[in-house]
Design a protein around this nucleic acid. Structure first.
Lengths: 332, 332
DNA sequence: GCTGACCGCCATAACGTTACCGAATTCGAC
DNA sequence: GTCGAATTCGGTAACGTTATGGCGGTCAGC
């Protein structure tokens, strides 16, 4: 409703001067700036987002592309603190955050293409990277500021924030070994997923150090729902040589595994040792002996926005990369 | 990059004609429409969001104001399917969804004021309504299309989607009674919260029907974290006349309660009967006997967007209100 | 053959903002 | 007293889109 023209008319100034005064332009007399700001406050002026965006080409919005693992909205719970961390940080930096959820039916590359063409965001957050993720090259080519949550194994420099999945998986495996486990099961998401690859790598490193050969049948893929985790772990428990330790992919994987254990009357921490990621602090509240490590996902969200923002401000600056460590609960 | 002017120049048409052709304007020859559309596809034309918004006053974005219960990102988990349901429905309707997270420090009314002044959204989703919510009147006055997730007890017509908390709490309480419980504890969020008020009402109705007087000491407020729930329930269990049944506020409340039970070596389903809401399907996977009922939060999200959309299209149309029922797991 | 209706298209203006250039005034310096 | 520089402001144009009035041409009706 209130716009520059109205303020200008009221103060007998030009629109240009009002615009400049509101951003403390050096070409405007201090007394005029004060008058303009007072009037702007009085009429409740807020700059029109679209007028500004049209003129400057910058939109003051960021878009996060977040994949849903399944069609029926059973997503990894750590997304919630991630979203909340991102929106708060974005707001603080003067941006608004748009969420673009994609289903497994959506092509990830096409989703990014859409965002590129619509150019309605100043920057993009992409997640769930795969080993040779074509989106990275695409966004770099098109010079669209972005930050990745996750890494690729490509030999290109690009800004990312990632969790040190390799180290986390290594430590998780070591913890299970400390409990005496030698047959250790590992939950992963999709094999192409870089985070899963890193976790497998950390798992492999710990196993190699201990001189334990890796049994592929103990490694489960597609563990993003409680159902798949429960079914998979149930089959493992029924095998002739069941695992004595388990490293879960996330809270959902944990709950599925607990379900399978409960069905068989087994007790976690006694019959099978379990370590899980727990960014929602859910696992540590369960009345069961479970080793937990957590990653501050809200912090990751904030960091993502920070990196993205500095990328937007200075697209040619140094490429920031952040590697976030997990925090393990002290072993009892 | 590609805009109407380029297409017009390429086809030796006017910008006006191209614009009309792309929306199948009746004033344009069918053959011209075909030519324009072909060219648009070829150059990868997508309408500039801000140019259109500036001209038409409509932005094609919706904003959902979502409060975080605590400062440290431990929010009610049902928000995740809610967000996913909303973004998908919004995308399908041609809108993008912006998330505006608020902390407990933010004033809810001021948050809405901000959105109003910035007028960068065509519609608003507000949540966590209180009994006499000033936001409803404010938005109605300013003629900003909105939909509420939750209700007030004000005597004004406004569009909302709500969960039938009264009925759910009634049924939950009845279930606990069927198990033989008479001392039934109830978890609520903030007392001003309308959802909590409804749950208290349904609880009261069931108790009255059974002729059981209500013991205020069994009703806990502020149960949005696992910690608060655990502490509260632990104190209840330590009392001289501990509860034998518990109706949890949500998954977090449940986990807190389970924690308190576990600490004392008590077993849910035997020592204390528990019923909980479970929109993430988390509770039913726990290896514990817990009665669960769920609300399809993704469906609620979709419904919210549907109602909001029809509100935007026809602001003077009938006020849609939707009451979503919970679904109880069959009692064993 | 003239009128009027209609079809298909164009030119212009406007949404609110900012970038750019230019103009008016003041002031100090010589 | 003249000149140039600095200060302070205004006018114009442009971002990409759509709404509006209008304009030439065709065609049916009388």
């Amino acid at each position: 409703m209130a716009n520059l023209k109205q303020i200008a008319a009221e103060l007998s100034l030009s629109v240009t001067t009002v615009s400049r005064a509101l951003k403390d332009g050096p070409e405007v007399q201090p007394s005029t700036i004060a008058r303009v700001k007072e009037a702007a406050k009085r009429v409740g002026y807020l700059p029109n987002h679209h007028g500004r965006a049209l003129k400057t080409g910058r939109t003051q919005t960021l878009t996060a592309v977040l994949p849903m693992e399944t069609r029926d909205h059973l997503s990894d719970l750590l997304k919630l603190p991630l979203i909340e961390g991102m929106t708060l940080a974005a707001r603080q930096a003067g941006y608004s955050l748009s969420i673009y959820s994609t289903t497994p039916d959506d092509d990830p590359v096409e989703s990014v293409q859409r965002q590129l063409q619509a150019r309605s965001a100043d920057g993009l957050v992409i997640t769930r990277l795969v080993s040779a993720d074509p989106r990275v090259k695409l966004l770099l080519d098109k010079r669209m500021p972005f930050v990745a949550f996750g890494r690729t194994d490509m030999d290109i420099a690009y800004p990312y924030v990632d969790v040190d999945n390799e180290q986390i998986a290594y430590e998780a495996t070591r913890r299970l070994m400390d409990k005496g486990c030698r047959r250790i099961a590992l939950q992963l998401l999709v094999p192409e997923d870089q985070a899963s690859a890193m976790r497998l790598s950390g798992y492999g490193r710990a196993m190699a150090e201990a001189g334990i050969p890796i049994d592929p049948s103990l490694i489960g893929h597609g563990m993003f729902t409680m159902e798949s985790s429960a079914g998979w772990f149930d089959r493992l428990l029924a095998s002739s040589d069941p695992p004595t330790g388990l490293a879960c992919a996330n809270e959902l994987g944990l709950l599925g595994a607990l379900h399978a254990l409960g069905k068989r009357g087994l007790t976690p921490g006694r019959d099978v040792h379990i370590v899980t990621r727990d960014s929602t602090r859910l696992a540590r509240f369960l009345p069961a002996k479970i080793g937990v490590h957590s990653v501050d996902m809200a912090g990751v969200g904030r960091k993502l926005i920070e990196v993205l923002e500095s990328r937007i401000i200075n697209p040619l600056g140094p490429v920031e990369t952040v590697l976030v460590q997990g925090r393990f609960e002290p072993a009892e």
